[in-house]
């Protein structure tokens, strides 16, 4: 391992370093690069996790596991897509693991279900800008179907992982996905 080990030089330059470059540095064994990645990503990852897990202690634990996993697995990143998405992939799977070890007492879905109706006209405009018809169609799905779509499509989880995350049996996830797909196709046809 022939590295300059010049900790000072790295610090000055890493304002310019991309996430990809930082991950390479982490793969090479630099805790400083990991710390910079943490400063950039821990905030939003923590919030995104909190939207799926009501217990802040579990969120902290999963956040910790995530960055330790980033440390050991940085070599596997290989520039495939956005670093943030890669890290979220790790984080959500760590959350699923945490739920497997200790199923939570309540799932945030129940709490969020009511708030769907409170979106303002402003939000509806924003939605329209971002996704056009699809947003409206998604909005008109029931909360349970929407949650399944989010877990499998947006978060990229398998049926079994989604089941663990949402606290429902895998069969239920499958049926709900079928119903969601049918409903959306009907809406968008």
């Amino acid at each position: 391992m022939d590295r300059p080990g010049e900790g000072v030089a790295v610090a000055a330059a890493d304002e310019e370093l991309t996430d990809g470059a930082l991950l390479s540095a982490v793969a090479g064994g630099s805790p400083g690069a990991l710390e910079e990645l943490y400063r950039r990503h821990a905030g939003w990852l923590s919030i995104r996790l909190a939207r799926r897990c009501a217990d802040p202690a579990v969120v902290d634990e999963v956040l910790q596991d995530t960055f330790v996993a980033v440390w050991t697995g940085a070599g596997r990143y290989r520039g495939a897509g956005d670093a943030g998405a890669w890290m979220w992939g790790i984080a959500i799977r760590r959350l699923v693991d945490a739920f497997r070890r200790q199923p939570p007492t309540s799932y945030p879905l129940e709490a969020a279900a009511d708030l769907g109706a409170l979106e303002s006209a402003e939000d509806r405009v924003l939605l329209g800008v971002e996704h056009g018809d699809l947003a409206g169609a998604l909005h008109r799905l029931s909360p349970e179907l929407r949650a399944v779509v989010q877990a499998t499509v947006l978060d990229g989880l398998t049926t079994r992982e989604a089941a663990r995350l949402l606290g429902v049996p895998a069969g239920t996830v499958k049926t709900r996905m079928m119903r969601a797909r049918r409903a959306l196709r009907k809406e968008l046809a």
């Binding site: 995104r48 909190a50 939207r51 709490a111 939000d123 998604l138």
Partner: peptide
């Protein structure tokens, strides 16, 4: 957590 489900999904995809 006061941003409805669909907007949340939107925001998260953007992030």
């Amino acid at each position: 957590g006061t941003l409805g489900a669909v907007l949340t999904a939107s925001v998260e995809q953007h992030l």
